[in-house]
C-alpha cells in the first residue's frame, strides 16, 4: 500500500512517464431498490431502480444494464393465409428464450460497442441468442469440427425480429438507449419497468462497463419475481393438487348457483 503510493509519487514526479500506471483499477458496485418483486392480487407491474458506482470511470466510458428474465422454450409459428383464413404454420421451437429482456445504456449500443463484443455477451435485441436444436446440425467447416449450422439460414433474422416485436408489445423486451444516467463521481442509475405479464422466476441483472468498444468490467446482481400471498397459494394449489382444485371449483359454483336461487326465490 505504502509502496504503491510511493511508486506513484515517484513515477508521477517524472512528467508524462507512464500514464498507464495511473489508471485506477475499474470496479462496479450496484444495487436494486427492490430485490424481490412480489406478485399479489393488486399487481399491475413493478418499477425499480438499479443504481451503483463505477470506480475508475473515464470520460467516454459507457455503462450498459441488461436484465434477463427466466429462460423458457418458446415456439414461434408463422401465420400463412390458407383458404382465406390465417393459420399458424411452420412451428420452430427455440430453447431457453428469456421471458424478460431489457437493455438500458448510456448511448445507443452501436455508438460505443463493437459488433463482436455485443454478440459475445448477447447484449441488444439484434444479438439475442436463438437456438433451435431441431433445426441445427454440426458440420466440419474449414477443418474445424463441431461447427453448429442452422438450417433456417437468413430466416433466423425474421424469427428473432418476431420474438422481439411480440415481446416488446407486451413490454417484456425493452431497449432504452439513454436509459442509464451517469451522475457525478461515477454514480449511475437506470429505471427498470416490469409489465403486468412479467413471468415469475430468477432475474439476472448485469452491469457492463464499456471502454474502447469492449466490456472491461461487469457486475451481476439478481432479482426474484414471485407470486405471493393468495396468488401463490392458489397457483401452487392448482398445480400440486389439480383434481382437488377442480372439485373445489365445481363445489363453489354449485353453492353460488344454489344460494342465488334461494335468495331470489324468497324475495
Amino acid at each position: 500500500m505504502i509502496r504503491a503510493a510511493l511508486m506513484s509519487l515517484v513515477l508521477g514526479g517524472t512528467a508524462n512517464a507512464a500514464p498507464e500506471d495511473e489508471i485506477q483499477p475499474v470496479g462496479i458496485v450496484a444495487a436494486l431498490t427492490q430485490e424481490v418483486v412480489e406478485i399479489r392480487s393488486n399487481f399491475t407491474g413493478a418499477d425499480f431502480l438499479v443504481y451503483g458506482a463505477v470506480t475508475g470511470l473515464e470520460e467516454g466510458d459507457d455503462i450498459v444494464v441488461v436484465v434477463r428474465g427466466p429462460q423458457e422454450d418458446l415456439r414461434v409459428m408463422r401465420k400463412i393465409r390458407t383458404l382465406g383464413i390465417w393459420i399458424n404454420r411452420a412451428p420452430i421451437t427455440f430453447e431457453d428464450i428469456y421471458g424478460y429482456y431489457a437493455v438500458a445504456s448510456t448511448r445507443s449500443l452501436s455508438q460505443f460497442a463493437t459488433f463482436s463484443s455485443l454478440r459475445r455477451e448477447a447484449i441488444g435485441m439484434e444479438h439475442l441468442r436463438l437456438s433451435a436444436p431441431a433445426h441445427e446440425r454440426e458440420e466440419t467447416r474449414f477443418g474445424v469440427g463441431g461447427v453448429v449450422v442452422t438450417e433456417l439460414g437468413g430466416e433466423i433474422v425474421d424469427y428473432r425480429r418476431a420474438v422481439v416485436r411480440n415481446r416488446a408489445r407486451d413490454g417484456l423486451y425493452v431497449e432504452s438507449p439513454g436509459g442509464v444516467e451517469i451522475l457525478d463521481g461515477g454514480l449511475f442509475r437506470a429505471d427498470v419497468r416490469l409489465p403486468p405479464v412479467t413471468p415469475v422466476g430468477e432475474y439476472a441483472l448485469d452491469i457492463y462497463l464499456f471502454r474502447d468498444g469492449v466490456p472491461i468490467a461487469s457486475r451481476r446482481t439478481t432479482l426474484e419475481v414471485r407470486k405471493a400471498g393468495l396468488e401463490q397459494a392458489l397457483y401452487d394449489f392448482a398445480h400440486d393438487h389439480a383434481p382437488l382444485y377442480g372439485m373445489i371449483a365445481v363445489i363453489i359454483a354449485l353453492l353460488a348457483g344454489w344460494s342465488a336461487a334461494e335468495i331470489f326465490r324468497r324475495r
Binding site: V76, D158, V200
Partner: peptide, 10 residues
C-alpha cells in the same frame, strides 16, 4: 408470427 410458451410458465 405468433409466440407460444411450450410448457406452462415455470
Amino acid at each position: 408470427f405468433e409466440l407460444m410458451e411450450t410448457a406452462g410458465r415455470s
